[in-house]
Amino acid sequence: MAGEQITLNSLPLGKRAKVKSLTSDGTIRRRMLDLGLVSDTVVEALQKSPSGDPTAYHIRGAVIALRSEEASKIMVEVN
């Protein structure tokens, strides 16, 4: 399934993917950029919180939890 683009919230746990684009705008977009989520950044889905949301991601050496609302606005490509 290489090359297929999905939203980050549907990335299975333990899988890595490359950021392709952000579909958010305004403040949320800036926040995501500040986290280092620019094009081609590798992101790994680590684990979900007990109730299934948010999910923790490995982003540029840091572990960041994103709610599904935010993660669904990040398009990634699974390697």
């Binding site: 403040t27 948010p54 572990v63 960041i64 994103l66």
Partner: peptide
Amino acid sequence: LPSSFALELPP
């Protein structure tokens, strides 16, 4: 509505 949320889980 709830605003955006990004929480760092530090080492």
